[in-house]
Amino acid sequence: MVNAYLVSLAATALVMAVLAMSAQLLVGLAGQPPLGQAAYLVVGAYTAATLATLTSLGPVQLLAASAVGAVAAAVTGLLAVRVRGTTFLMVTFGVGELVHAAAGQWAPGGSEGTHTPPVIALPGLAPMVRPGWVYLYVLACTLIIGAAVTVLTRTRFALLLRGIAAHEPRVQATGHHTSGLLLAAYTAAGAIAGAAGALLVAVTRYVSPADAAMGISAIALAAALIGSGSMIGACAAAILLVAVRDWAGGLLSGHGSTLLGLSFLALAYLPRHRLAGLLRLRDRGRT
């Protein structure tokens, strides 16, 4: 029943869950929808792939990918945080497409992508070849990232971001540089997306410019929106969307896109707040 394909699919779903948390930080907390988070995922993935020639140690790759993702987001975020709302969506989309194109042009392996050796979870352990071990490694990393994000959502920083989403001039009038706060949030989201990139490399042992495609960013944003403000909701939605696209789509011989579109519609019309209530997600979400 549970074959290697399903296990690696589950690991891919976790990677998408991490990317959805990255999107949720921006849209769920700060109210700014990003449509380019896959760019930082790919930046992180190529960082991990490049580093793999030096070390196969997974955590090192993860931290490096996260750091480079944050730097990339901090630089490109300067463009994004100048605008709000739909324009923010457009700017992040544009940045994502530029990174996509740049990866095809200059990244190692060109548009073919590049393969990496299996990662090692901890020093002294063997490289992880079997999907089960990879899944457990990705699950552990996802839980750690999720815990860090949960801590972040309970800080004063998160309160200020929610204030910006609700009424930005009010937050300015209380003495806060709102664009600076948004840039910090964008950088943190880039770090999370970069980490997701390192996890992607651990799962697929391969990275290509296609991973920066707009469709990946769109699924992350859709998962965040379906999660209506909650981090766990975004993760659940991301896992659900990957399951629909790859697993159910595979069973129905390649109708993944059809199913994905239908599930977007279904989730948009379902009473999301009630779904979320079932999963007890809204304790610290929007009231």
Binding site: F157, G163, A166, H167, T174
Partner: peptide, 25 residues
């Protein structure tokens, strides 16, 4: 009224109280 409506009354005031660290948990 320019208020952050999704937040509670106390949270709205806390946005303005000075002397708090941004990373404070």
């Amino acid at each position: 009224p320019a208020l952050a409506r999704p937040l509670t009354v106390a949270q709205n005031v806390l946005l303005a109280v000075p002397g708090q660290h941004v990373a404070a948990l």
